[in-house]
Structure formats: C-alpha cells, structure tokens
Simulated assay, not measured.
Amino acid sequence: CHIGGNVSTNAGGIRYLRYGSLHGSVLGLEVVLPDGTIVNNLSTLRKDSTGYDIKQLFIGSEGTLGIVTGVSILAARKPKYTNVLLLGLGSYNDVVEAFRLSKNYLSEILSAFEFWDSKSMEITLEAQNKMNPLQTRNNYYVLIETGGSNNDHDSEKIMSYYQFLEKSGIINTGIMAQDETQISKLWEIREAMIFGHSFFGEAYTYDISIPIIKMDKAVSALDKHLNEIGLMENGGNANSFGDKSYAKFVTGFGHLGDGNLHLNVVANKYSEEFTSILEHFIFNYVKGVSGSVSAEHGIGYIKPGYLHYSKSSEAINMMRSIKNLFDPKGIMNPYKVIPTE
C-alpha cells in the first residue's frame, strides 16, 4: 500500500471520524499528466487562496487524470494514550443516541465509533471460535476508541460517558479494555467481520454511505425484500431453491461516525442473477436516501455503471469533460470511474 495510491483512491478508514479525509490533510501533490507534464504543486502551506485548488482533482480520481508521484501531507500525531470501550445495546435508536452523546462527552478525544448488529457478532465469533467478551447477547454492539495526551483526563471523560449511558438505560452492558492486549482483542472482532461472513458462504459486501438514521433500515429493507421475492432461506427450506443462489442472512456493520455502512448478504453461492437483484435493490435504496454507492472503496471498473445512483447527469458530464481535457486519448487507467457513453 503506497501513499500515492491512498491519495488516488481517497482512502478512508475506521478513524475517519477524527482525522477526516485526504481532501483535508493533503497539502500538495506532484502529478505526472498523460502527456508527460510534471505538475509540481508540493505546497506545505495550510492556507492558500490563490485560485483553483488543483490537487483536489487528483484526490480520489483513481489514476484517471494523472499519476501521483509526490505528496505533501499533514500528518497527525499519534495519541499518547488510547482507550477502547465495547458496549451492548438493545436498539438501533440507542446506538444513534450513544453516538450523539459521545460527541458531547468525548468530543476532542473521540477517534472511532463502530457498530455492528447481533448477527455480525454471532457469525464472527463462531468463525473465530471465540466467546462474546460481553458474555451476553445484544441486538447491537458499539466499539468506541479515544486517544489523547492525558490518560487521567481521558479516563474520567470515558467513565462519565459510560455512567450516563448506563444510568439512562441506553446501554445494556459494556467493558473497557484494561491494556494493549485487550484493546487488540476487541478490535480483532471488528476487523474480522468480513472473514466471519465469508466463513458461512458467498459474502456480498456493499460499501455505501447513507444518513446514520437510515443504516438499520437499509439492513431490514433488504432482508424484507429478499423474503418477499422468495430468495431468503428460512428454517429448513434450503432444498427448495434447487440450483438457485439464495440468501442465508443479511447483516450490517460499519463506521457509524461517518455514515459508512457495510451492508452484507451471505448467500449459498455466487451468481450474476442474484448479484443483479441485490445491486438493483441496494443502489435504488441508496439513491432514495441521497446516499453514495461507494463510501470509501472507490468506483474502479465495477461501479461506473452505477455512478448515476449517486451523481446527477450534469455532475457525470462534468467529470467526463475533465477526463477528456486531461486525457483526450484515454490512456490513464481506462474504463475506470467514468461510465461509457
């Protein structure tokens, strides 16, 4: 993984909530254009209002406009102290309220706010042959990370936050990691979720960005749709599908702090027909809530045909015009990002 590639894909991650995107932290770029011109814009200035901010065109362009060969980037200091809290909650409304309160109670030390549903937890733990660290089943789970320079100050804020959640009945239970080993073990659960889903069948994972209040509804809407069209396994009816692909279950997890949902379907096997059914429903749902079909994994050569679910025709035409201006021969990462006319 190279920094030029990270910039070209506008790579995000679990701590986007705290550090933001590369659109905010990249100060300057050196880029080689399709005609061989080297554009040296390696500024280190925090403030510069001298015309167009050219570097922004290349961040997230996936190499379709030029090759990033140099980066001037604002690097955040690694926090001296890190704390991690795992919570069990009864409803998605409680998850949203816990997030709202985390902004008030934890504010400047809040680094990550991850969530997942009970099925995601169940299959991930089973795939890893591990026990639930909370010891009880909950409908939803939240993992919170903080980072700061004064551990006493941070711990006091976290405990105040936790005690309020507990007193208000927003959470069922929770634990705070006591050392680096426990921090790693809690993060391992979240980071193993893709593997956990793949352990039980063909895992379809969709990286979408939608309003936070809609995240659980996206999961339940897809589950309901698959049931209504007869493509959801229920009990012992697996034999009734014959050679068809069908869903075993639908789950949701992701970066709640920045509205990034990983919407997952585990199926018995892959098929283009089943994929088409999923994507038609999911991307129409995303469009209906003014979301994005790709929150952090880019467009590449798979999703250009779905760009219209997130971008207006005017925006797509403008992107195409910029591409043609920089790369009239179409030699830079062809067939990526921009849909064919």
Rank of each mutant, 00 (worst) to 15 (best):
E279Y: 06
I109E: 03
M319N: 15
Y306N: 07
A247E: 00
R77C: 14
S21P: 08
E228K: 12
I67V: 14
I38M: 05
L226G: 07
I212E: 04
D216S: 12
E62S: 05
S240A: 13
S118N: 13
P133L: 09
R100G: 10
K336G: 02
L42F: 01
T44K: 09
E108A: 06
L86N: 06
A177P: 03
K103S: 09
F326A: 11
R18P: 02
C1P: 01
G298Q: 12
F253E: 05
I299R: 08
N324A: 12
L307D: 10
K130W: 13
N40R: 01
T275W: 09
S310M: 11
I175Y: 07
T69W: 11
I158L: 13
T82W: 07
S292G: 12
I59N: 04
K323P: 10
E122R: 12
Y52N: 15
K214R: 15
W187C: 14
G300M: 08
L222T: 02
V219K: 10
I189N: 05
Q135Y: 15
S184H: 06
E296K: 01
D258K: 07
K269N: 11
M131P: 02
N317L: 11
E191P: 05
G5N: 04
T124S: 04
S25K: 02
N268F: 09
Y105R: 03
L17C: 00
Y306G: 08
D53S: 02
S321H: 12
F113M: 01
F249Q: 04
G254D: 03
V71F: 00
L307N: 09
N150R: 08
G242Q: 11
E97G: 06
M193R: 08
V265Y: 02
R100L: 14
T69C: 14
V286G: 08
A267K: 04
T69I: 13
D53Y: 00
K323V: 14
A177L: 02
R137V: 11
Y306E: 09
S271N: 12
Y141R: 07
L143S: 04
G254P: 03
M121L: 14
R77Y: 14
S49K: 12
S220Y: 08
Y162Q: 07
T173F: 12
K119G: 09
R77M: 13
A177S: 03
Y81K: 01
V71H: 00
D117T: 07
V39W: 06
T146Y: 00
L261I: 14
D243C: 13
D243I: 08
K303R: 10
F281W: 12
T181W: 03
G12P: 04
G63D: 01
N324C: 14
A11T: 06
E97Y: 06
M232Q: 12
M193C: 11
Y105I: 08
I277N: 05
G257C: 10
T37M: 10
G259L: 10
K336H: 11
N172P: 06
K269V: 15
S312R: 11
I338F: 03
Q178F: 11
K269F: 11
Y141E: 05
V96A: 05
V286N: 07
I212T: 05
V95Q: 02
T251Y: 04
G300F: 05
S72I: 04
Y204G: 02
P334C: 08
Y16Q: 08
Y92N: 09
